[in-house]
Amino acid sequence: MSDMAGQKQKGLEAEHLTVELGGTRILDDVSFDVVPGEVVGLIGPNGAGKSTLLRALLGLVPTRAGHVALGGASLDTMAPKARARLLAYAPQGAPIHWPLTVERLVELGRMPHIGPWQKLAAEDFARVEAALAATETTHLRRRIVTSLSGGERAGVMLARAIAVDAPWLLADEPVASLDPYHQIEVMEILRELGKTGTGVVVVLHDLALAMRYCDRLVLIDHGKVVASGPPDKVLTASNLQEVYRVEVIEGDHQGEAFLIPWQRLKT
C-alpha cells in the first residue's frame, strides 16, 4: 500500500469528463480512476450515465471536456490498435450479425494483436483456450453463437473480451438478464481477473452483487459522481434513498453483509 501513488500513475484515469449527446449533458465533470487488480463497480439508476462513462473511457463517444489517460499517457493520441490491446470491452446485449462458431467469435478478441495479413499464432490460440476455460465455455466451441442460450452467450461474449488479454476490462451490465447461477459465475470470473492484476470496471444494477464482488463502487446520478469508495461506504441507506429512491433490507450472512432493495419510497 506504500506505493499507492505509484500505482495510481499506472492506472486508468478519467479527468473532468463531460459528454453531451444530442444537446443533452450525459456526463458532467466526472473524474474517476481504477488501479490494476481492482474491480470497480459503476452503479446508479437508469439513465445516470454509467454506460456513457464506459464508452467515453473507450473513446467511443466524443467528449466535450476532460480526458482519459492510461498510465499517464493520453488515450486520444493512441493508435486504435494500441488502445485495443490495453482496453477490452464487453458491451451490453451486443449484436452478433453472422452465425459464427463460438471458437471463431472468441478468436476475434485476438485481432488487436495481429497484423492485417497475419494468422493467429500459437500464443493467440493459447489465449483463446484460456478465455474459454475461464468462462467454462470450452465445450461450446463448435456451437453456433446465435443458437446459444442467454447464459451460454453471456459466457462466450465475456470470453471474447477476456481473450484480448488487456490489462483493463470494461464490462457493461454483464449479468443483465442472466439467472442467479450465471450472474454469480460472471461476477466470480471478474473477481478472478482482478486477482490476476486486471483492472475491471463493471456496470451493475444488482446492488447485492455490487456489494459482494466489487472492491470499490462509484455511484453515479444525473451524470455526476455522487459517492465513491468501499461498497459499504457507498451503499448507505441515505445514498440509496436519495439516488435510487428505494428502501433496502440489510443483512449479514456468515460475516458478509448483503442487501435487498425492498420498496419504493413514496415521494
Binding site: L60, A94, P95
Partner: peptide
C-alpha cells in the same frame, strides 16, 4: 470479421 460484433465492439478491437 470484427464488424460481426457491431460497430462499437469492432472499434474497441482496433
Amino acid at each position: 470479421s470484427a464488424l460481426s460484433l457491431g460497430e462499437e465492439t469492432a472499434q474497441t478491437l482496433g
